[in-house]
């Protein structure tokens, strides 16, 4: 199978490329990026062809593309990819507006291509184990959940609203909302949120707090803040606590690490040794394409998570809960 990567604007593209290289019977044939320096370096690093215009890549015989442009550009690229008959793995969040998300989902459906959204946390081994515990009923009926996906401010286009669609609250809400929906098989009914810029002098949000209620009555909260300081030992976290009638469990997606105190870097760092979740995501996408099955994480999943993040912004603006 031949795969291309469109844009390295989102740094996850480098990880996905590395994963593609590790899979059997998959070839990363080309990369496209409108940044000339970035695209030539990526092509050299991964040993493949490159294009400055993604439409040229779409004109080749690639079977599928991984889209890692700035968030606001996802929609046009994905719609063009669908028209060209290419299956798509799209970085999260699916888009910056609900209209764009619908446009992407419709185009992919119309042209019969797979649209999978990159929520790799679903492939984190401890997170999968907890999904299994819940599905087996070990925790009883789930009644409450608490999530965090804190991080460091990535800077660059991530803090330019016209390209990113929003700051921390958009960037770091969608992963955990996706996991909560996946665990509960229920949709978010109502969102209340505090959103602010308190960690740096930027024109978009860098922290917040979401208070949620699901259709099945489960209450939940989530912290998506870019609140990790420079000396914090890792980029951030993904944690969940799940309260059920028969038990409570806490899961930390990145607990499996060594701690390294480095005088060379003058820093304390976590060195992760657990299973590589991006590889699970990319392998799953490839097998969906090969077998023509419904992707395990659909465009609708991407849309639902985006809805919650956008509702959080609206709630913060209105200073009241917003119903979905």
């Amino acid at each position: 199978m031949k795969v291309g990567i469109i844009s390295f604007a989102h740094m996850h593209a480098y990880s996905y490329a590395t994963c593609l290289k590790q899979l059997d019977n998959v070839e990363l044939v080309a990369v496209a990026d409108d940044n000339p320096l970035r695209v030539t370096e990526a092509a050299k690093q991964f040993g493949c062809a490159y294009y400055s215009d993604y439409r040229e890549l779409l004109a080749t015989d690639v079977d599928a593309v991984v889209v890692c442009t700035e968030n606001a550009k996802h929609a046009d690229v994905v719609v063009d990819a669908a028209k060209a008959g290419k299956h798509v793995l799209c970085e999260k969040p699916i888009a910056t507006t609900l209209d764009d998300a619908h446009r992407m989902i419709d185009a992919c459906r119309e042209h019969g291509v797979i649209l999978q959204i990159a929520f790799p946390v679903r492939f984190n081994t401890p997170m999968r184990r907890v999904k299994q515990m819940i599905d087996e009923g070990q925790l009883g009926r789930i009644v409450a959940m608490r999530g965090t996906n804190r991080g460091q401010n990535p800077g660059g286009w991530f803090v330019q609203k016209e390209l990113s669609g929003g700051g921390a609250v958009l960037d770091h809400t969608v992963h955990v909302i996706d996991i909560m929906r996946w665990y509960l098989n229920s949709e978010v009914k109502e969102v209340y949120a505090e959103v602010d810029t308190r960690f740096s002098d930027i024109a978009c949000d860098d922290c917040g707090l979401l208070m949620l209620e699901f259709e099945n009555g489960v209450i939940a909260s989530h912290d998506p803040s870019w609140s990790r300081s420079e000396t914090f030992p890792t980029w951030g976290d993904v944690t969940l606590e799940i309260v059920g009638t028969q038990g409570v469990t806490r899961v930390d997606a990145f607990a499996q690490h060594l701690t390294v105190y480095s005088d060379l870097d003058n820093k304390v760092k976590h060195d992760f040794w657990g299973d590589e979740m991006d590889l699970g995501l990319v392998a799953d996408f490839i097998s969906c394409v090969r077998e023509g099955r419904t992707p395990s994480i659909t465009g609708e999943d991407g849309l639902r998570a985006l809805q919650v993040a956008l509702a959080a912004y609206e709630s913060a603006r209105l200073r009241k809960p917003v119903r979905l």
Partner: peptide, 23 residues
């Protein structure tokens, strides 16, 4: 080492802590 320290503790590197109710 002279340039740093590597630490591991299995109880701290545990990803899931579950507490099940007595039936």
């Amino acid at each position: 080492g002279t340039g740093g320290i590597i630490q591991h503790a299995s109880d701290e590197a545990t990803s899931i802590h579950t507490d099940l109710r007595a039936s």
